[in-house]
């Protein structure tokens, strides 16, 4: 089965070294497990210099065709991305596959009063937006904001990364109400969560993501291969859903999506 990982990263880390240090290490691990492609960001874009990190991710992806760059963004289009045009230009030139947000670590609210310009742009581009927060750090207000964003921007695929095993009472209602809300498989580990989401809301809502190399990718490959769901649904989760979302991205410059 093909696997495309929408949640991977490269770069330095603290308080310990991550198990995979380089893009070559990552490609070896991907080959061992049958992961065909990984969407990567650079840790500098998360926890150090945003623009330097974004450039590092696109440079790495240029040298490693199995890797696809993800751009980390914030609501400050003018100050941090050269305005709307600057952001579009970067996205098109580097064939960015998704935009990733860190509302908690980058100190901004996802509420539309703050993210309206960013999400208007994402909506115009039909760009998948990956929302990153580790499980125990999410507040109830963040889920309120996620729900509101999904409702106000129905053309933006909103992907909650690493939803964790304690989140069902929050994410199931959003999955029920919002066709554009997705979760990835990293730490979607509560008993039968994959099976229940598939049965109740559709496998279309789950994207394969590992959070490699922070987390061990093999277990998420195994979780899908051994899932108690149909082969067709496994394929949707493993790669077809992200291929479909990718085909819908509108790049104003440089032709259609890859």
């Amino acid at each position: 089965m093909r696997f495309i990982d929408i949640n991977a990263m490269l770069g330095e880390w603290t308080p310990k070294r991550l198990f995979l240090q380089t893009a070559e290490d990552m490609e070896k691990e991907m080959a061992r497990l049958g992961i065909e492609k990984a969407y990567i960001m650079d840790t500098k874009a998360w926890l150090s210099e945003l623009s330097v990190g974004n450039l590092a991710a696109v440079q790495t992806a240029k040298e490693h065709p199995a890797l696809r760059p993800v751009m980390v963004m914030t609501p400050l289009l003018e100050q941090e991305f050269g305005g709307r045009e600057g952001a579009v230009e970067f996205i098109c030139r580097h064939r960015v596959g998704a935009v990733r947000l860190f509302p908690l670590d980058h100190n901004f609210t996802l509420h539309p009063w703050n993210t309206d310009r960013l999400f208007t742009l994402m909506s115009d581009l039909r760009m998948p937006v990956l929302i990153d927060r580790m499980e125990h750090s999410a507040s109830f207000e963040e889920y309120d904001q996620l729900y509101r964003l999904c409702r106000e921007y129905p053309d933006v695929p909103v992907v909650l990364l690493t939803p964790g095993y304690r989140s069902a009472r929050m994410i199931y209602p959003i999955l029920e109400k919002c066709a554009n809300f997705y979760v990835d498989t990293s730490l979607l580990i509560a008993y039968r969560a994959v099976e229940e989401i598939t049965a109740c809301f559709g496998a279309e809502h789950i994207l394969f993501g590992t959070r490699m190399p922070y987390l061990e990718p093999g277990t998420f490959v195994g979780r899908i291969l051994y899932a108690d769901i149909s082969e067709e649904d496994k394929e949707k989760i493993a790669y077809k859903n992200i291929v479909r979302l990718d085909s819908q991205i509108r790049y104003p410059y440089g032709g259609n999506s890859q």
Partner: peptide, 18 residues
């Protein structure tokens, strides 16, 4: 930690490890 966590996840963590 089954059934807090799915048994498939716990077992595959070992089976698919290096």
């Amino acid at each position: 930690d089954f059934p807090y966590h799915d048994l498939r996840y716990g077992v595959t963590r070992i089976l698919f490890s290096n």
